[in-house]
């Protein structure tokens, strides 16, 4: 469903992604690992359509379409979800209003009528259970004053609400306590099916115990330097990145 070919991207003239090739099929989970600053978040941002990054080469096709042609909002409406490494606060905008707007935009895009208030509340209730998030969070403004872990949970809640085809989770596990980690992982697993795919960006093997990946990739200096099965994550946990750095 996602074909990335030799993707290059730069910011302020500095090239950060230096030719990434990656293929994701429906039903798969891919883990992307790599040292700090290697370009993981940049890759996620470029896929989601953030315009601060300039695509300088390569191509991305998503469900047979040229993804790079689409504005960020259309990518989202077509089922791409990015769980942010650093979710932003939007003061004064309630989660309820935010989610409702997002869902209705998606529905409008698909030619559907806006969701009814009762269906929306039902959906909220259902999804809140999946991620074990309380109303005290969803009644507040978007991420405002949320703790680090709460912000991450809130990302998964939004993912559950929007039911994406391709979810890219950027270090959703960092800053989570053990219970929260389990909850988030369960949330992701519950939403997993044969038609959608997930890219998890993480530094820790422990998340991958819960969300078992089909493929693990190591990103280093803007390139994928190694791809393998889930055992690669264990190997990295044990050996670190130095052996890969030396090879490259």
């Amino acid at each position: 469903m996602l074909e990335i070919k030799d993707l290059r991207a730069a910011i302020d003239g500095k090239e950060i992604l230096k030719g990434i090739t990656l293929s994701v099929k429906p039903g798969e989970v891919h883990a992307v690992m790599g040292p700090n600053g290697s370009g993981k978040s940049t890759l996620a941002s470029v896929l989601a359509g953030r315009e601060t990054f300039e695509v300088t080469g390569g191509s991305v096709s998503y469900l047979g379409e040229d993804l790079l042609e689409l504005p960020a909002e259309d990518r989202a409406r077509k089922g791409i979800f990015l769980g942010f490494q650093y979710p932003v606060e939007i003061p004064g905008v309630s989660m309820v209003n935010f989610m409702k707007t997002a869902i209705n935009e998606q529905r409008k895009f698909k030619g559907m009528d806006p969701i009814s208030a009762s269906d929306f509340l039902k959906l909220m209730r259902e999804k809140k259970e999946i991620v074990e998030i309380t109303s005290s969070l969803t009644n507040r403004s978007v991420n405002e004053g949320f703790s680090g872990g709460e912000k991450k949970k809130n990302e998964i809640f939004q993912m559950a609400m929007l039911e994406p085809k391709l979810a890219i989770l950027d270090e959703t596990d960092s800053g989570l306590d053990i219970d929260a980690l389990r909850i988030v992982a369960n949330g992701v697993n519950k939403l997993r099916n044969k038609d959608n795919a997930t890219i998890v960006i993480t530094h820790y093997q422990r998340l991958l115990d819960h969300i078992v990946p089909d493929h693990v990739h190591v990103l280093y200096k803007g390139r994928i330097v190694k791809s393998s099965g889930k055992e690669l994550a264990l190997e990295l946990e044990e050996k670190g990145y130095d052996w890969l750095k030396e090879e490259n």
Binding site: G49, R50, E73, A76, R77, F81, F84, V88, A102, Q106
Partner: peptide, 10 residues
């Protein structure tokens, strides 16, 4: 961008 990413245009 956060809003865009949720399908909300600028």
């Amino acid at each position: 961008f956060y809003c865009n990413q949720r399908g909300i245009d600028t």
